[in-house]
């Protein structure tokens, strides 16, 4: 049986596939899973031809915004987003890293102005050694991929 089918199929909605297992919980948090009121199915440590193990999230009746896709790209640039209608994949979106990230990631530097005053964070995305680094527009410090924390 195909591994996707081990998690219940949805009629329409979004399937976030090929997530690295270690990225699953961060992605759930970044997309605000607790605020989603439609059916959600989550599978982890499923067999994957590409990575050995993978995670998958299926969200019924919801379609992602560009912002959501950007957020997912930050955590796992290998994830694939499938748009489902009538149980069929009608669109496959590879997540793509934006050049700039505004407003939803916290700067890691405790001495940064964005952690002291009500200032929306802004980062430039810099890829170094295949890792996503976010350079703060204000304090110029780097928030590394493993330290990305989402503001909600």
């Amino acid at each position: 049986m195909k591994s996707e089918l081990k998690v219940k199929a949805i009629e329409k909605g979004t399937v976030i596939d090929h997530i690295k297992p270690e990225a699953l919980y961060k992605i759930l948090s970044i997309i605000g899973i607790e605020k989603i009121d439609t059916q959600v199915f989550i599978g982890n440590n499923l067999d994957s031809e590409k990575y050995g193990k993978k995670a998958i999230i299926k969200i019924a009746d919801k379609f992602p915004s560009i912002d959501d896709i950007n957020k997912i790209a930050l955590i796992d640039p290998h994830a694939v987003i499938n748009i489902i209608r009538d149980y069929q994949v009608v669109e496959k979106k590879k997540v793509e890293l934006p050049e700039k990230i505004e407003g939803f990631v916290k700067c890691i530097n405790p001495k940064c102005i964005t952690n002291h005053e009500k200032v929306e964070t802004k980062f430039k995305v810099v890829i170094k050694d295949e890792k996503v680094n976010l350079k703060c527009y204000y304090c110029e410090k780097i928030t590394g991929q493993d330290n990305i924390e989402v503001i909600r």
């Binding site: 530097n109 001495k111 940064c112 102005i113 964005t114 002291h116 005053e117 200032v119 703060c136 527009y137 204000y138 304090c139 110029e140 410090k141």
Partner: peptide, 8 residues
Amino acid sequence: SIEGSARY
């Protein structure tokens, strides 16, 4: 003393 304060 706060970093990024001048940019802001």
